[in-house]
Design a protein around this nucleic acid. Structure first.
Length: 250
DNA sequence: ATGAAGATTGCCT
DNA sequence: GGCAATCTTCATG
């Protein structure tokens, strides 16, 4: 047994098309153990990417250095860097047929290491530059607590709400690209919520919703985003918006 | 070599 | 609701 709670998810569970895995992996737990401690999240939102068959997938145009892990064995983490500042993590699924399918982990609820997760998610004080020294005017705290110092505490639901936030809370970065999440010795692991995988499955099976994926420009119509209905940790939907408008008139 | 866009987030009006 | 931050990757010349 590793960490706390249930057994590791078997590699065979992930070695299937990502569209099957994405809804079924909801409720499973991703945990990352570092010298600082352990943080674990129960997955509440995922998206399926179908690799070579999916225009929205990083693997659509074939294998490159960045997406190489998606073509490798299933049960490994595909971590990529984006927007110059964020990391996102996927679980590599079926790939024996070269399909390179994967499941993007979009959100989760922290179930272990909340303090550490909050520390990682607390933005650094920008006062050093003197750019934002205006104290006061904090938004109302959900718990009714006043901030002790500096910044307002991050709400619990926001700790891993969104793919980049999830990575920040778990301290997932480039160094974990390719990490095997199906072996006990790995720092990054995927396990069932309870000791009984069947019970874990039954507990979440009736409340899964689905819809279009967030922020994708192509294949925007396929409902390959899955989430646990009613979960406050599920990220808000945002349609894709091109950021660089092309200059039309001088 | 160069440039555009990106599986995002947080702060602005 | 809009936009800047920030840098890697990929496509094109």
């Amino acid at each position: 047994m590793c960490g706390s709670g249930g057994v590791l998810v078997a590699r065979d569970f992930l070695d299937r098309p990502s569209v099957q895995v994405a809804p079924e992996v909801l409720g499973c737990v991703l945990e990352h153990e570092t010298p600082e401690g352990l943080v674990a999240v129960r997955l509440t939102e995922t998206e399926a990417y179908a690799g070579l068959a999916d225009p929205a997938s990083h693997a659509y145009r074939g294998k490159t250095r960045r997406n190489a892990v998606m073509f490798g064995p299933p049960g490994h983490a595909y971590v990529y860097f984006t927007y110059g500042m964020h990391f996102c993590v996927n679980l590599v699924c079926l790939c024996s047929d070269g399909s390179a399918s994967a499941v993007l982990l979009r959100a989760g609820a922290v179930i272990a290491g909340e303090d550490l997760a909050r520390a990682r998610r607390t933005r650094r004080q920008p006062d050093l530059d003197g750019r934002r020294s205006d104290a006061d005017g904090w938004p109302p705290d959900l718990d009714g607590r006043k901030p002790d110092t500096g910044r307002p505490p991050i709400a619990f639901r926001d700790l891993a709400r969104g793919p980049a936030r999830l990575c920040q809370a778990l301290a997932i970065d480039r160094s974990l690209d390719g990490a095997d999440v199906c072996v006990p010795g790995s720092p990054l692991r995927l396990r069932w919520l309870t000791e009984d995988p069947v019970a874990s499955t039954a507990a979440r099976s009736e409340k899964i919703a689905s819809g279009p994926r967030v922020g994708v420009s192509s294949a925007a119509e396929v409902p390959w985003r899955f989430w646990v209905a009613g979960e406050p940790t599920v990220s808000v939907y945002r349609a894709h918006v091109p950021r660089h408008r092309k200059l039309v008139t001088p």
